[in-house]
């Protein structure tokens, strides 16, 4: 039996939609962002449309049913039903789109704003171009000492950071419900600390939310000014811990 082209195309589009949702949500465990989904579906629908309208026979399979419904007298009853249902439907959809929403205004915020070339902390100036983690060299040189520094970083993390950034470093600490706008950084995410230099983390931690430039919305971030609570040493060690726990590598100057 030949399946009508219209049904075939609808099935293909539906299967593509379902497949993508299944792939992301169930197999990859991360729901697909709505904007990405819209983009995929746009291309898929265009693709299906082009494939089916390439020759006249298949095009007729798609458009035929519509034409017959609208203009063929034998379909009069069905047409009447469709004609009665459509205007209220259009009304409702338009209302949903145009009604005034009371949603919060969209605010743009740079998550990793450009740092200054140098900044003041602990009574001295730090040059971002040359700043390096003094403990990083231990990793190869003295692994035991390095491990010790990582463990000290863990202590810093668990007494200061994990309320927001979480036990699993995924940005879901037990205070996150209250401090979720902006949401705490997820250190495990690709594109977070793996894309950054340790000097950037040092600056970001030392100056905290209020030390951000305006594009980072310094008035909104609950990140404390850590140079008021931690020593320089503690900040470098907690940075070691963040990389060690997540398995990411800091970006270095050469690359």
């Amino acid at each position: 039996m030949k399946i009508p082209g219209l049904i075939k195309s609808v099935v293909i589009i539906w299967a593509a939609w379902y497949g993508i949702v299944y792939l992301f949500t169930d197999l990859l465990g991360a729901p697909i962002p709505a904007s990405v989904m819209k983009m995929y579906m746009f291309f898929i629908i265009i693709g299906v449309f082009m494939a089916f309208t390439a020759d006249e026979e298949t095009a007729e399979e798609i458009f035929g049913p519509f034409r017959r419904l609208l203009f063929d007298r034998s379909h009069r009853v069905l047409r009447s039903i469709v004609f009665i249902v459509i205007p209220p439907l259009v009304f409702m959809v338009t209302y949903e789109i145009t009604r005034p929403t009371l949603d919060a205004p969209v605010e743009l915020r740079a998550v990793h704003p450009a740092p200054p070339s140098s900044f003041m902390a602990f009574g001295k100036s730090f040059n971002m171009l040359t700043l390096e983690n003094p403990y990083r060299s231990l990793e190869r040189g003295k692994p035991d000492k390095f491990r010790e520094a990582v463990n000290e970083g863990r202590t810093v993390y668990y007494t200061n950071c994990f309320f927001c950034h979480g036990d699993k470093l995924e940005g879901k600490g037990h205070f996150v419900k209250g401090f979720n706008n902006p949401a705490p950084a997820n250190f495990r995410e690709v594109g977070a600390i793996g894309q950054l230099q340790e000097s950037f983390l040092f600056w970001r931690i030392a100056v905290g939310g209020p030390g951000l430039p305006n594009e980072g919305a310094p008035w909104a971030s609950p990140m404390p000014v850590w140079k008021d609570f931690l020593t320089e040493d503690q900040i470098w060690k907690v940075i070691l811990f963040l990389y060690d726990y997540t398995g990411h590598r800091p970006r270095t100057f050469g690359k």
């Binding site: 205007p87 209220p88 209302y95 145009t98």
Partner: peptide, 17 residues
């Protein structure tokens, strides 16, 4: 006022029908 535009859209549809 929030119903004007949806109503208009509905009437346009009826017109085409």
């Amino acid at each position: 006022s929030v119903y004007y535009i949806p109503a208009l859209a509905g009437f346009v549809m009826i017109f085409f029908e």
